[in-house]
Design a protein around this nucleic acid. Structure first.
Lengths: 351, 351
DNA sequence: CTGAAAGCGCTTACAG
DNA sequence: CTGAAAGCGCTTACAG
């Protein structure tokens, strides 16, 4: 029957040493000499009593809570936001840190955000991650400047906080490259009409790729709402008018997977087979669309897990006082968006 | 310029009172009399100095960390698991509690789970939520019995820990009720071949509904893998053979939205319009399928947010020592799964 | 190689 | 109505 609460003094008593010694051996305190015999006795006593140090007490003394806070905008509504959390949590565990989470609802009062950051600070968070979506720049609460902090998904206006985001642009370019390599030259882009950074980045990436291949970057760009219905309408517009297979696009690169879903429906209604008659590519690798569509959708994955892991990794460096990392604030780190090749791309039909 | 760190003694000094008094007025300690004048002075001083109590120190003293731990299986891969976290986090905030999260990977060593629970305990978590999916019963680490704890998504084998889960069965029954009310009598169920609780619950609920309506609960049950391809095959089997519209099902209730996605494709290939020729219903209200399908899918929502909120709510009661709640362990609390009516259900065509 | 003591920043009987 | 003092469970100079 273990005692109600076994503390360091119980271990000391059981081992016949002082609490100082117990602390040193259990923590392997550097620059400290303890005889192997004593060490063994302490460890045995700790083991026997099932001693578990109280992290709160240690934190109070060392001024390090061993906790980092993640303030994330819309955990709920962002596809795969869970993977950001997962990446952050697992990386935190690797550093023996605990991850606390607070959800920040979109468009709320700035005072509430301040209070949320403050809640982490009151708990002596060693660092804070501020994760957003759909923003280029963000003006985080002032409180964030007083602790190690990193931004995910956006840069701060002042460029003072290290930030990381997906390289949407390069991801889009790599899609065009793949399509060109597969033999396509009339590659359409169904762009999004919503003004978020991803919209601009993906369109720009598409243009980069087209230009690099010596193709007209504007000839086949259409714009629609970034939902299935938009993809449907865009694809209809692209493939319907031209009964002329010699001039219409042979591939449709959609701004996102939801639009690709609409493109599939349009193709079906038009009697066009994917990928034989037309190739379709999405973006987001959004579960469960991408894998559930028939044929399975070739798309681009967002590095959510990596974003979260990068954030924690960078935070730990900042916490160690490597303040030169603050320089990262001016230039966001871009993480690659890998293509996930499935079955919706094939060489264009011989016209 | 605020001091490097302002503590309670700084406030006391500024207000010209003892730290005892500062603590009492800032915490509104019951059974304590303090003159309004003193209170005002203390509050003014705290405000002026920007004093923020150190929650770690308070926790050490009060033996309550103000933190609860969520150990969740597969945050990453479960659709909408984010909403469980959101519900738990927002409810926690309402109670002035912080939510810490650790992800538990499926099928891992039991020792790892023990260590994960222990990590929360070391940080003096006031309570722990153990959330799983795909399980009926679960054998949580022993450590969980030593603190206030609740289970989400499963009951524990011994029935000692309060638990909560979605009422899949009643949700399925309500779909049949809706379909019957709309005029259907030949209602098929595309069941899942995967053996998880949801499979059994939804099938049972379907049967309940059919039986209650005086219909044969077995006539139109088919089984397939719980993915789009399974829904496609099941629907093909159901609607293809009978060129006879007089005997084939007029509605297909799919085990989940992914299967419904396959059902849509089958209907399209068969030249059947939804909902004019056949009604389709899913389950999960899985974003982005349900709303992106055309026509938008009528389905059943899982109460993820409510599950998370219930867990925290119950935990707070347990933390207050309302131990009679442990009795809940024997009988899981079931939370309603509401139907989300969209556009895939209509009265059957007059045959 | 080991330990006595101070202190992290609070709360809380207890006394007055 | 207010305050001195102990103590939550650790870590860490410092002394020996």
């Amino acid at each position: 029957m273990p005692r109600e609460h076994v503390g360091i003094r119980d271990v000391a008593a059981a081992a016949g040493v002082s609490v100082t010694t117990v602390s040193h051996v259990l923590n392997d305190t550097p620059h400290t000499r303890t005889s192997e015999l004593t060490k063994a006795r302490v460890r045995a006593a700790a083991e026997a009593l099932g001693y578990q140090p109280n992290r709160l007490a240690r934190g109070l003394r060392t001024r390090a809570s061993g906790m980092i806070g993640l303030l994330t905008e819309e955990i709920a509504t962002t596809p795969h936001a869970g993977r950001i959390i997962l990446g952050a949590q697992e990386e935190a565990s690797r550093h023996n840190l605990t991850l606390a989470i607070i959800n920040s609802r979109l468009n709320q009062d700035a005072d509430i955000e301040s209070a949320q950051v403050q809640a982490f600070i009151d708990r002596q968070a060693d660092g804070i991650i501020y994760a957003t979506v759909y923003h280029d720049e963000v003006v985080p609460p002032d409180e964030l400047l007083s602790v190690p902090a990193v931004l995910v998904g956006a840069r701060d206006r002042l460029g003072e906080i290290p930030s990381v985001m997906p390289d949407e642009r390069a991801g889009a370019t790599s899609v065009v490259d793949l399509l060109v390599r597969t033999g396509h030259r009339r590659i359409a882009f169904a762009a999004s009409s919503v003004d978020v950074p991803a919209t601009r980045g993906r369109l720009q990436g598409y243009r980069d790729g087209m230009a690099a291949a010596g193709l007209d970057p504007d000839a086949f760009v259409v714009e629609a709402v970034s939902e299935a219905i938009g993809g449907y309408e865009a694809t209809m517009g692209l493939l319907d008018h031209g009964a002329d297979p010699a001039t219409r696009p042979t591939a449709v690169f959609c701004y996102n997977d939801r639009m690709a879903m609409g493109a599939y429906r349009a193709a079906a209604e038009l009697g066009l087979s994917i990928p034989q008659d037309v190739s379709v590519v999405g973006f987001d690798d959004q579960d469960p669309i991408a894998a559930s569509l028939y044929p399975a959708l070739t798309t681009v994955a967002l590095p959510h897990y990596e974003l979260g892991a990068w954030a924690v990794e960078t935070l730990t460096s900042l916490m160690e006082g490597r303040d030169e990392l603050r320089l990262l604030g001016a230039h966001p780190t871009l993480l690659a968006c890998p293509i996930v090749e499935r079955a919706s791309v094939a060489p264009p039909a011989r016209a």
